Simulated scan of single mutants.
Amino acid sequence: MAAAARLAARGRPLSRPNPAVGCLVVRDGIVVGRGWTRPGGRPHAEAVALAEAGAAARGATVYVTLEPCAHRSDRGPACSDLIVEARPARVVIGQRDPDPRTCGRGIERLTEAGIAVAARACPVSRDSLAGYLARAERGRPHVTLKLATSLDGAIATAAGESRWITGPAARAHVHSRRAMADAILVGGGTWRADAPRLDVRLPGLEPRSPRRLVLSRTIADETVETLPAPEAIAGLEAVQYLYVEGGAQTAAAFLAADLVDRIELYRAPIVIGGGAPAIGDIGLASLAQAHGRWHLAERRQLGSDTFEAYRRQAQDQPRDGDKR
């Protein structure tokens, strides 16, 4: 399932408005088919993997990160029907689909056809579908807050100099993360002070530059979209993944509104002293409120800089899903 989830990442974010799903077909320990959701949402991962497997899918095991869809569409057949036609012996599903058109129905269709189904609550599948599930369960995009700081937590000198705190390896990694987002957002102060390009500047990935958003009520610039408040992200169409880059007040606004799902922290081995803090006041009343909120999900070295990703612990209550 972890391998299927890695395949799913290839579809993000171009699969929008559909979720990025990964699928593997395995027979006798050998992968005979692999697929991920293609740009625009079709074909689905299962259709691609089964087409590659061909006759070898019969009697095989299908691993798919999301419950196969059960609804027919003008854009393509239902994946549960395709699987029934392929006649695998077993299907392992990493996450039930909250879409009411499929929820449980895809599994039901497979079991009625005599195919063994294992529907597991798989964390790696859930992580790979974070944007889709955030939309379905919380009615908004999945939000990643990116911070690049010195060892003492500054994002700039007292005079405002911030280029560059981190080195080239860390900056390239940031661009790879931008390429995985549907939209990128900065605050009005950052936009006015730095005029950031907010694009992807990695060879071959330039077309994946996300939509550019600014958190501001006053900026009038036709090259960007503006949002009046963090809560307005719920109204962003076709955005499953939002990448928030700066600055300190914008970071504080999203944290105070409890809208951050993941923090990605790039830390350079420098000490600035008296510099601009990475995050403004978030209204924390006591240290007890701060503990137990974030869980380390990933750590790696990027040149001389350290990258750490933290996942939010508490989750909101689910709500009816979006359509797949």
Rank of each mutant, 00 (worst) to 15 (best):
M1F: 03
A3L: 12
A3F: 07
R6F: 05
L7P: 10
A9N: 02
L14N: 05
N18A: 15
V26H: 00
V26C: 09
G29K: 15
V31S: 00
V32R: 01
P39L: 09
G41F: 01
P43W: 07
P43L: 11
H44A: 11
H44N: 14
A45V: 14
V48C: 14
A49Q: 05
L50Y: 00
A55C: 02
A57C: 05
A57K: 04
R58Q: 15
L66I: 06
P68G: 05
R72K: 13
R75Y: 13
D81Q: 08
V84I: 11
V84D: 07
V84H: 00
R87E: 14
P88N: 12
I93P: 03
R96C: 01
R96S: 15
D97W: 12
P100L: 04
R101Y: 01
T102K: 02
R109S: 02
E112Y: 05
A113Q: 10
G114Q: 06
I115F: 09
I115Q: 10
A116W: 01
A118N: 00
A121Q: 08
C122W: 14
V124H: 05
S125C: 15
S128D: 03
S128N: 01
S128F: 02
V143I: 11
L147I: 07
A148D: 08
T149R: 11
L151G: 10
I155M: 05
I155P: 00
A169K: 02
A170I: 11
H173P: 06
H175K: 04
M180F: 09
M180D: 01
M180Q: 11
A181M: 04
R192D: 10
A195R: 15
L198H: 07
L205D: 04
P207H: 10
R211M: 08
R217Q: 14
T226E: 08
L227V: 07
A232W: 09
G235T: 12
V239T: 14
V239K: 11
Q240S: 14
L242W: 03
G246A: 14
A251V: 04
A251F: 03
F254R: 01
F254P: 07
D258L: 03
R262H: 09
L265Q: 13
A268W: 01
I272H: 07
D281N: 13
A288I: 02
Q289T: 06
G292E: 02
R293K: 14
L296K: 11
L296R: 12
A297S: 15
G303Q: 13
T306G: 12
R311Q: 13
